[in-house]
Amino acid sequence: MSEHGSSPVIRTTRNAVAVELSGVHKWFGEFHALDGVDLKVMRGERVVVCGPSGSGKSTMIRCINGLEMHQRGKVVVDGVELTDNLKRIDEVRREVGMVFQSLNLFPHLTVLENCTLAPIWVRHMPRREAEALAMQYLARVYIPEQAAKYPGQLSGGQQQRVAIARALCMNPKIMLFDEPTSALDPEMVKEVLDTMVELAMDGMTMIVVSHEMGFARQVANRVVFMDFGQIVESAEPEEFFSHPKHERTKLFLSQILH
């Protein structure tokens, strides 16, 4: 489902960088939430972000689609720099899908309507076409039979898979995940992670905040460790887990790996 491979070389090189954050700072009042973050994610790359609670993972990922505005530095997404220009932000959001930690499907719309809403209103897609597209993605997350139900009638895992399908219906170039499994009961975590693994196999560019180390080992090109609003360490999964360089990373890994 991506622009991988077949696109002309020129376009690939120009757009080779999917997301680039350079020297990004963000304050909440006095609190320094992001303290000079540099992160470059290439097209097709999968980056897993981890770090202790309050280290700024969510804030960073939310700066990528303009849910938070950074105050210093530069955020460029798919060649578009995010400023406080609302048009630009909307432009970026159309190309960037996001799945949140909290289950936030629209409760007043059916599963199908949740999926067709943005294609119809933002992409101006004919309803029929949008519905066909939605059914296709619902089938991909293995719940086409739930299309007519309301979100409240689904389990947490199913809701999160619908959220993934809903984002995919916009045909995004980049997918952001903010701890998509941490609000779920343990038995539902796997079904959501499996869906994300399949997405990764298809070559989607993904930035995933997660502490699921198995998932990170399986799909990540790179694991990034954040602490106190900074990126402390960034390495390939094998290297990251077996030879962490920084003390803080070691401490963190010892805590989550028991």
Binding site: L86, N104, F106
Partner: peptide
């Protein structure tokens, strides 16, 4: 989080208010 989910899908402020 409902508004944010709508924004994240690319809906404008007005559409998010009206539809969600």
């Amino acid at each position: 989080s409902q508004t944010e989910a709508a924004y994240a899908l690319g809906l404008t402020r007005g559409l998010a208010l009206r539809l969600i």
